[in-house]
């Protein structure tokens, strides 16, 4: 029998962390309140004191804390990233989630006993890349990029069976349609880089304009979508926008949709993954409570050998659509 799947949940604030722990998270991932992590959004994330308190609370409740330090320091300014790693190590975080090779190197040499996970931002999509990160920097877990189908994940896990490494996959929430950590679209439109500054489609560059009775959502100088006056206008995430190609307007990259692999949990377990990740450090604690509770129930059912109950996430997707994304081949 497989060992139980680990449920890895997001927290953008101490309140969300408590909500995730109460709802049954096995691990909670979070970041510092700066550009060292890929959810560097205004008003979000943890300072050192909050992390220390969060660690104590989580550990008292048997939950692990993973600290995401998963942006790429730009030349000349590595200090904030080094400090973040030092702080996570000093405070006793259970692991750090890293993407940059220079930072992996720093962590492996300065804090060899600090467990290292490879962030999805490193986009390690194949066995040779995973082997490399494990051999060179002692990475113990790889978060797989959202580019692989379930059969490809299974094949990948078979190929890396000889390496002491776990794989983690996303099962719910926002969905990058481009290979993670390798997308400069938002940076091209706003000058703020997801890789360097930790924010995609940043709120600072979002604005809404009323044009001839239509609501237009813009990111920097570019129109991302248009809505009728009484239609709710979504947040203009670049790759979920509507654009024109060959004279036709469409959601060319992806519809405004959320990933839900809730129906694929047994398949993902059979494919050999260790941990399931829920996206959404920027979402509120109400979201965290509901999603984590639902997935906890599903995983407990699977662990007990029962079929997972159908998950009702309708309240969280707010009329948005759900997709199994790349896990099914036809998505490509």
């Amino acid at each position: 029998m497989n060992r139980p799947l680990e449920l890895v949940c997001p927290a953008g604030t101490p309140a969300a962390l408590r909500a995730a722990v109460e709802a049954g998270a096995d691990s909670v991932y979070l970041g510092f309140r700066d550009e060292t992590n890929a959810r560097n959004f205004p008003g979000l994330n943890f300072n050192h004191k909050e992390l220390a308190e969060g660690l104590k609370y989580a550990h008292d409740n048997g939950t692990r804390i993973l600290v995401a330090i998963n942006t790429f320091p730009e030349a000349g300014n590595p200090a904030p990233w080094h400090r973040a790693v030092d702080c996570a190590a000093d405070l006793g975080a259970d692991a750090v989630i890293l993407a940059d090779i220079g930072l992996l190197d720093y962590t492996a040499s300065h804090h060899p006993s600090l467990r290292r996970h490879l962030s999805v931002q490193a986009s390690a999509s194949n066995p040779e890349a995973i082997r490399f990160y494990c051999n060179a920097f002692g990475v113990r877990r790889v978060v797989l990029p959202r580019v692989l189908t379930v059969p490809e994940i299974a094949a990948l896990n078979r190929e890396i069976a000889g390496i002491d490494v776990e794989t983690e996959v996303f099962v719910f929430g926002g969905l990058c349609v481009m290979a993670e950590g390798r997308c400069a679209l938002s940076s091209y439109a706003t000058g703020i880089s997801p890789n360097k500054n930790g924010a995609c489609s940043p709120a600072s560059h979002v604005h809404y304009e009323n044009q001839r009775g239509k609501m237009v959502s813009k990111l920097g100088a570019f129109t991302i979508n248009q809505f009728h006056a009484d239609e709710p206008a979504g947040y203009p995430t670049l790759c979920k926008g509507r654009f024109v190609t060959n004279g036709k307007a469409s959601y060319l990259f992806e519809e405004p949709t959320s990933l839900s692999a809730a129906m694929l949990l047994p398949e993902l377990q059979a494919a050999g993954v260790t941990a399931l990740k829920i996206e959404g450090r920027q979402r509120g604690r109400a979201y965290i409570s509901q999603v984590v509770t639902a997935f906890r129930k599903a995983l407990d059912a699977i662990a007990a050998g029962q079929p997972p109950p159908p998950l009702d996430m309708s309240a969280l997707t707010e009329g948005q659509r759900q997709t199994t994304g790349v896990y099914e081949k036809t998505w490509r």
Binding site: G12, A15, G43, A203, V206, Y208
Partner: peptide
Amino acid sequence: EGNTECVVALRNAVDGAE
């Protein structure tokens, strides 16, 4: 209306405060 970033920050801040 206005500065979206401020609104997101306010929302995140009050959500975190319970």
